[in-house]
Design a protein around this nucleic acid. Structure first.
Lengths: 240, 240
DNA sequence: GTAATAGTGTCTCTAAGACAATATGTC
DNA sequence: GACATATTGTCTTAGAGACACTATTAC
């Protein structure tokens, strides 16, 4: 079926990043305005080609992340999301993107990337609804990344990645509410996060009061899996 | 930071398959004996390069799947697993593999692939333990695929993909026991699979008796998400 | 003490886990 | 009727959801 002289086609590999954070109690995605064709001027996920032939994919994602956010990667969660490689997704040819999901605590302000593109935080809702248009298939990628985050904070301690080193339970609740987009009952939330062994541990310190009772500070506990999990409110998508 | 003449490095793209099935109530992985260098003669996951420059990645996975199993793809579940692209993973150069997870009902017998390699079913335990050595980083890929299956049958109706079009509850229980590697209580299992709305629906027919009471036949229901889920027995990996 | 935020307690109901007995076929 | 397999029921306990009050600070 194949010619003797057949040789496998090669592709260009990019890493793209769905970087999520909370700003004003609202889930935001970092987007950049493209400075080059194709889709010049359009918003897109930050990302780029592998730097050199020997670069690890995950290392490339870390590199793009620090280029766009000027973050010390210490407090940033980064994981592979999925691969997007449809032949027609990039007009430049066969470009396969390894998408990654990054979650960071509230970042001060976007910085221009080294490639002089503008970086902006866009509310996740605006991306999900299509109100904000994205280049390539980046809206789909962003959707998948957000859904991944929504699903993972149910069963993993990932939500603490949205917080700084120390945080209050109320702040953690705001994370869940923002990511899931639903309000939660404070009393049940306190009970559940403290029932999940190894999820959060008290630091002993308090957050200085802002006009009310000071809140106890916690930091991320040793466990990455949450048991019992924090199941998100069930949207009954079932047919009776 | 980059030369003006810099151009992005290109890579070769492969699809590799973790094909799971049940044989004699035991989870098995399909492996092929490599007929070419590198790793000639070693066992590896089935897979191969993209056929041509315009081939969809998922289509390539389907193609490899049918080449190895001679299955009508109708009753096979296939999903993307992850990307493995470390620079040193393939001695031929920069080869990036998009791994897929395939789940099929008990297949009659392995067939030789069109590339004349031998295909064999290997117990998942032997792969997980390292008792059977695999080429490249395929052991890690297989581990990830098996763990994905173990996790997904908790919350999705994926387990029915291990069964044929119709099946008994006892057979479905054997799927869970084989994939998780733990025995389950029959009474609780019956209760839970029938409580999960839209998971399985009775066909009305019975399976012809094999010396005992005939079992009612079911087929996969309309829902892909299981609620309530079937949580696997909790291995307490927590520190008190 | 008033305002503001943090933290806690109870009741009900659903679901999980641990158990054994009954039902329905073949021979 | 003996056998083999399928199916069902109860009790106890854990966790989810709904709900309102008390505690601690600043001013």
């Amino acid at each position: 079926m194949q010619d003797d002289a057949w040789s496998p086609p090669s592709v260009l590999l990019t890493v793209d990043l769905v970087i999520l954070t909370l700003r004003e109690n609202c889930l935001h995605v970092l987007l950049v305005e493209r400075g080059e064709e194709p889709f010049r001027g359009a918003l897109a996920l930050p990302g780029g080609f592998l730097n050199h032939d020997g670069e690890e994919i995950l290392a490339a994602a870390h590199r793009e992340l620090s280029e766009e956010t000027a973050l010390t990667s210490g407090w940033v969660h980064l994981e592979q999301l999925a691969v997007y490689g449809s032949p027609g997704r990039d007009p430049r040819g066969r470009v396969v993107s390894v998408a990654h999901l990054a979650i960071a605590p509230g970042l001060p302000d976007p910085v221009a990337g080294t490639d002089a593109t503008e970086a902006v935080w866009i509310p996740a809702d605006a991306v999900l609804s299509g109100e904000v248009a994205l280049a390539f298939d980046h809206r789909r990628i962003a959707q998948d990344g957000i859904e991944r985050a929504r699903a993972k904070i149910e069963f993993s301690a990932l939500a603490t990645a949205f917080c700084g080193e120390s945080f209050t339970i109320a702040e953690l609740q705001q994370v869940y509410e923002a990511v899931w987009g639903t309000p939660l009952d404070t009393r049940n939330f306190y009970r559940k996060v403290q029932a999940a062994k190894g999820f959060i541990v008290p630091t002993g310190a308090d957050r200085k009061a802002t006009g009310g009772r000071p809140a106890r500070l916690y930091r991320a506990g040793p466990n990455t899996v949450l048991f019992p999990p924090l199941i998100r409110p069930h949207t009954t998508g079932e047919e009776e």
